[in-house]
């Protein structure tokens, strides 16, 4: 894990003591947002966070402090959210094939010329474009979106994502590349400025 959660709150079980309420209050905010990013449903995210705290209370005595408490809770929350995702019957997902890169019969890529490519700042400055990016990510099928979020957003490495999702590292890489390629296609109207903020 390489991002913000690996270097944050360095609370240990001894400093937490039996103050369960403080533990919940200190961490519920970011845990809820994390679960919501994975589940995209506030009610399910609340279920995941509740399950995560139950697992944390059970496991706290055995927490060895090899990682920070936040890193440990992060993983527990991801696991709880993924468990819920596996149980929930999702609406039929759209096939992604039509958004994958296209090639002609000579194996040459079909890619219209790019006259303009929006910068990250242009997107961040517009609330509307920001929301459209969120929506596009939401359009990815769960199996692809989860890999993209765990690798590119939450900061887990390939082998950690493989372990969390119970799939091979090769499969993680295939799904990650496809998720990014499909998202690129979905974001094209924004990137090409065909959609004005």
């Amino acid at each position: 894990m390489t991002k913000e959660h690996s270097k944050s709150v360095e609370t240990t079980p001894s400093s937490v003591g039996d103050d369960a309420e403080q533990l919940v209050r200190d961490n519920i905010g970011w845990m809820l947002l994390l679960a919501d990013r994975l589940l995209r449903d506030r009610a399910l995210a609340e279920d995941a966070v509740q399950a995560a705290f139950m697992a944390a209370f059970r496991g706290l005595a055995n927490f060895e402090g090899r990682s920070s408490l936040k890193t440990w809770l992060h993983r527990i929350t991801v696991n709880a959210a993924l468990d819920i995702l596996r149980q929930v019957k999702r609406r039929a997902e759209q096939p992604i094939d039509e958004h994958l890169p296209e090639f002609d019969s000579y194996e040459c890529r079909i890619e219209a010329p790019w006259a303009h490519m929006a910068s990250v700042d242009e997107i961040l400055e517009s609330e509307d474009l920001h929301d459209r990016v969120h929506k596009a990510i939401g359009e990815l099928p769960d199996g692809y979106r989860n890999v993209l979020q765990l690798r590119d957003v939450e900061g887990y490495n390939t082998s950690e994502v493989a372990e969390l999702l119970g799939i091979s590292e090769t499969n993680v890489k295939v799904r990650l590349h496809r998720a990014r390629a499909v998202l690129k296609k979905l974001l094209e109207p924004i990137l090409r400025r065909e959609v004005q903020p």
Binding site: E111, P113, L191
Partner: peptide, 24 residues
């Protein structure tokens, strides 16, 4: 290859945008 060059640039920009928009 102009097509692959621009494709890769847009792919990388998509990745930067995803990280920037989704991450705290």
């Amino acid at each position: 290859c102009r097509e692959c060059r621009e494709y890769l640039a847009a792919y990388k920009r998509t990745l930067e945008i995803t990280t920037a928009v989704m991450a705290p």
